[in-house]
Write a protein that binds this DNA or RNA. Structure first.
Lengths: 141, 141
DNA sequence: TCTCAACTTAGAAATAGTCTAAACAACGAA
DNA sequence: TTCGTTGTTTAGACTATTTCTAAGTTGAGA
């Protein structure tokens, strides 16, 4: 599954006339290695292990900029916003018991044809959230 | 499209040994008539027109209780949590320009067969969010 | 009517996210 | 390499959202 790529971030920075700072680099690197879908607070904590003075504002600014440029997806679960560094088309599975969010690459979903909507909306993208019991919670039941 | 039904709320109250208070009734009635997907704050404001002293805690308690009992759906858009009083299976369309959330009853989506997932999750429900341009924003472009 | 568990209330507290103004630093130009 | 422009970072104040608390209130069964 394709992840947030450094060279894409670099080219975004350049075409928009921005600057690549150590803080931005650290945030992007953390997202690249994250095994989960971290919250803003988790990104904050992780980046502060490298740069102890990184401020909330910088973390939120960078995450929002990545989001606006479609380098990360926002996922809302359990009352908290998570950031998903996977950029390839994919969907999410949420466990109703433990709340864990997993990525799903299900061809059956990707084959859905975008239907024409009754009110003449123009559909550009689609996100699917499946809910149920994850493998671990089925066993521990 | 089926909406939050009073008799279902009543029977939930009774089977759970709870009490039906005027505040709860007012919140449910407002959700039944709402044309949009109101936020907690909008519910608060509306209910306070009838019961001027209704507290935040009561509104949040009631909304959370309805959510846990699947009488309303939570929809996160534009950094804000909305509550959707439609209980029938349906999905959402979000306009990328104006942020408006519309209900979608699209048979093409409902016909999707829930695929078997690679990691043995047990899928119980599915939510689809379509994004694009709403009819109004296509015209005003 | 009585009783008690459930409920509501105001306000405090926790949590999440944005804004500000001053100091700082990346990077292209000289 | 130095300089200057301009974008960036910082701490902390501020706003908004949601939860918690303790005390008083009330719905509904007996």
């Amino acid at each position: 599954m394709t992840r947030l790529a450094s060279h894409k971030v670099m080219s975004l920075v350049q075409t928009q006339g921005l600057k690549m700072t150590p803080q931005r680099r650290a945030i992007v690197e953390y997202l690249q290695t994250a095994k989960t879908h971290p919250t803003a607070d988790e990104v904050m904590t992780a980046v502060n292990r490298k740069f102890p003075m990184t401020s909330r504002a910088t973390v939120y600014n960078t995450l929002n900029w990545l989001k606006e440029n479609r380098m990360v997806k926002e996922v809302f679960e359990g009352g908290v916003v998570h950031f998903d560094p996977h950029t390839a088309a994919h969907h999410h599975f949420v466990c109703n018991k433990c709340g864990k969010v997993e990525d799903v690459d299900c061809s059956a979903i990707n084959e859905i044809k975008l239907c024409s909507l009754p009110d003449h909306q123009k559909v550009e993208t689609m996100e699917v959230t499946l809910r149920g019991l994850c493998a671990a919670c089925q066993k521990s039941k």
